[in-house]
Design a protein around this nucleic acid. Structure first.
Length: 665
DNA sequence: CTTAGGG
DNA sequence: CCCTAAG
């Protein structure tokens, strides 16, 4: 069979912006975001490369589509899916753009939604056949349980790559549909048990998935599992096919005609262990022996968790919400899918049931997920480690949320693990290195306020602006670039973003230069690096490392005064009153600065006060009086009655110092 | 949205 | 400074 696969060119920004870091950068038009799903026909070469399909291939597939259309089952369609049969155009950005433009957010989907469904349906059929083949071919060599790692590995396998692609495409397609959704396989049953079983199988056994699809007749007589049929210990190994089928039926409540023993065993094993019913009846697998235990054998279940690991987290997550769950997939889809399903209240009982210990101790622990940057910062080693560690965590009954949202680890041929994400930037929808997002942070609204202390600031601003522009061009984005871009991003990607990013800023800067009087920095929004950080002493000495805006003394003073007036903690108040004109200082900033001030003041208090004005560390030295005042305020704030007789004096002196200084800041 | 606190 | 969790 020719390796024809539909690869998804999918941008799922909508699902989670933070996840899709750099795509959501300003470099992309909203239009692209609005068209999340695009498919493109490609062929998977022997080495795993994705090559655009030729005309012939496209024709061929189209014919097939037509033929199969007749008996295709209808699938609920939300107009989110589009099958695109492009020309032989190289998989480039244009290709995608064209496609995207041709479709205006599902408005024209009515045209032939049915047709599309039929096609997708056909792909499903094809997929099943392929999978069955695969299944037969690989059934002998397959280990008992396929862990996530295995699944990942499988994705790299040449033999399965096309399969994966097709499957992924198909299932993702499903996953995009809203509302109750029937897979062709499940037909009438919206039964949780069934669905969850199906999911679990798909998620954990990438190889044999198709088997059930193709083989299980749509006639599900009894749709409820009947665990009572399973008595005591059952050695799956010793069972005949017939018995296995029976067990299967008992387990899942439906018949199967699959004769593959291994397949059956895995199904049963997985189905049981993933069953939502584990809370009442727990089955565990020990050395291929199915053990039924009334009491929860947490230990054993943990083992299962470990084995199935990450993927099954999704399964567990899914149990509650099966009605809308189409499938679980390897790769990004899996992740996205998971995120989509993770509703807070659906803190699945399945997971908790399985991992009793954890649920007993604490229901929700929210380890703060550090932002994407840190995820993508992880290097090769870490990636491998994470794959492993997620497994480990599961073993301890601890599901690390991090593992859920962590990027997919793909082990490329040269044994290096890369963090990748599904990306269509190159047009081929292949995995590309995971790069950190372009830029974060709030915009800096305007700079007007600063200027009030810098009547002469203009000349400087030009310089800074120029230099800022230059720096940006040369090194893109200081923050993210230094660590991540160089080694991670694809060159193409980089360039595009770079151009897209630089342009607008150039404009802004130009404006800033041309119309210094009025427009000034109003246009320099998006604070991105565009901080013409005039007041920063560091700007004089070059190397403005970040888009920091150094705190001026006057700002500090206002802050201190504000704190003295309103008390520490009322940052929004202080900001409103004292920093009304400082749009770029948020209450958080105030708080941070205050924290720093406290630190500084106490540090200095214990130290020699002589170095207060030293410029050793290029940053603005904070006059001792201010620090003293800070300390005093801090003490007052901390509840104690420090009774500093000097408080008044300090207050006065501090203020006077401030006033005198603010003049030439 | 604001505050608190960690990175 | 940035991020996130909580209120």
């Amino acid at each position: 069979m020719e390796k024809l696969a539909e690869v998804q060119l999918n941008e799922e920004q909508r699902i989670d912006e933070s996840f899709d870091s750099n795509i959501s950068s300003p470099a992309l038009s909203p239009k692209q975001i609005a068209n999340p799903v695009v498919y493109k026909l490609v062929r998977v070469e022997g080495d795993g490369r994705l090559v655009p399909a030729t005309d012939d291939e496209v024709m061929e597939v189209e014919n097939l589509f037509e033929e199969e259309k007749v008996e295709a089952r209808s699938i609920v369609d939300t107009g989110q899916v589009e099958v695109c049969i492009p020309d032989e155009e190289s998989p480039s950005v244009e290709a995608k753009t064209e496609v995207s433009e041709g479709k205006s957010q599902g408005e024209d989907t009515k045209v032939d939604a049915e047709k599309l469904n039929a096609r997708l349906e056909y792909i499903g059929v094809m997929l099943q056949q392929v999978k069955q083949e695969e299944n037969l071919r690989l059934s002998n060599a397959s280990p008992k349980h396929s862990s996530t790692l295995m699944t990942v590995d499988g994705q790299c396998s040449d033999q399965r790559e096309n399969l994966s692609a097709v499957e992924e495409k198909l299932q993702t397609n499903h996953s995009l549909k809203e509302g109750p959704l029937r897979t062709p396989i499940l037909n009438d049953s919206s039964n949780n048990q069934l669905v969850s079983e199906e999911i679990s199988l798909k998620s954990t056994d990438g190889l044999a998935v198709g088997g059930s699809s193709a083989s299980v007749p749509a006639s599900c007589s009894s749709s409820m599992p009947d665990f009572s049929r399973i008595k005591g210990e059952i050695c799956l190994d010793n069972q005949t096919v017939r018995e296995l089928q029976e067990t299967f039926r008992a387990t899942f409540g439906r018949e199967t005609t699959v004769k593959d023993k291994l397949w059956l065993k895995r199904r049963i094993a997985m189905g049981l262990t993933n069953s939502c019913d584990v809370s009442t009846t727990t089955f565990t697998i020990k050395d291929n022996v199915l053990v039924r235990t009334k009491a929860k054998d947490t230990q054993s279940v943990m083992e299962i968790c470990k084995n199935t690991s990450q993927t099954n987290e999704m399964v567990y997550d899914s149990c509650k919400d099966v009605a809308t769950i189409p499938a679980v997939k390897v790769g990004d889809q899996q992740v996205l899918f998971c995120k989509r399903l993770r509703k807070p209240e659906v803190d699945n009982e399945c997971k908790e049931d399985v991992c009793t210990e954890q649920s007993a101790s604490k229901r929700v622990r929210k380890p703060t997920k550090r932002y994407i940057e840190e995820l993508s910062e992880s290097d090769t080693r870490e990636c491998a480690g994470r794959c492993e560690s997620s497994t480990k965590h599961s073993g301890n009954g601890h599901f690390s949320p991090k593992s859920i949202i962590s990027p997919v680890c793909v082990f490329s041929t040269d044994e290096t693990a890369l963090i990748t994400r599904q990306d269509s930037f190159g047009g081929s929808g292949v995995q590309v290195p995971y790069v950190s997002r372009m830029r974060r942070g709030r915009p800096r609204e305007n700079f007007m306020s600063i200027m009030q202390y810098h009547p002469n600031g203009m000349g400087m601003s030009v310089d800074v602006a120029k230099s800022a522009l230059g720096a940006r061009i040369s090194q893109q984005d200081n923050e993210t670039g230094e660590k991540n871009w160089k080694d991670r991003a694809t060159p193409k990607h980089n360039q595009q973003q770079m151009v897209a990013k630089t342009e607008p800023e150039k404009e802004n800067v130009v404006k800033c230069i041309d119309e210094p009087e009025t427009v000034y920095f109003d246009n320099i929004d998006s604070g991105d690096n565009s901080d013409c950080n005039l007041t920063s002493p560091t700007s004089k000495y070059g190397v403005r490392r970040k888009h920091h805006r150094a705190w001026t003394l006057s700002e500090v003073i206002k802050l201190v005064e504000g704190v003295s007036k309103y008390g520490a903690g009322r940052w929004s108040e202080i900001k409103k009153v004292a920093f009304a004109s400082y749009a770029y200082r948020t209450s958080v900033d105030l708080k941070d600065k205050w924290r720093n001030l406290l630190r500084a003041s106490f540090a200095q208090g214990s130290n020699d006060k002589g170095m207060r004005n030293s410029r050793k560390h290029g940053s603005m030295p904070i006059p001792a009086p201010i620090l003293l005042r800070v300390r005093q305020l801090a003490e007052k704030d901390s509840g104690g009655t420090p009774d500093l007789s000097s408080s008044k004096f300090i207050g006065c002196s501090g203020r006077s110092v401030l006033d005198s200084r603010s003049g030439y800041l």
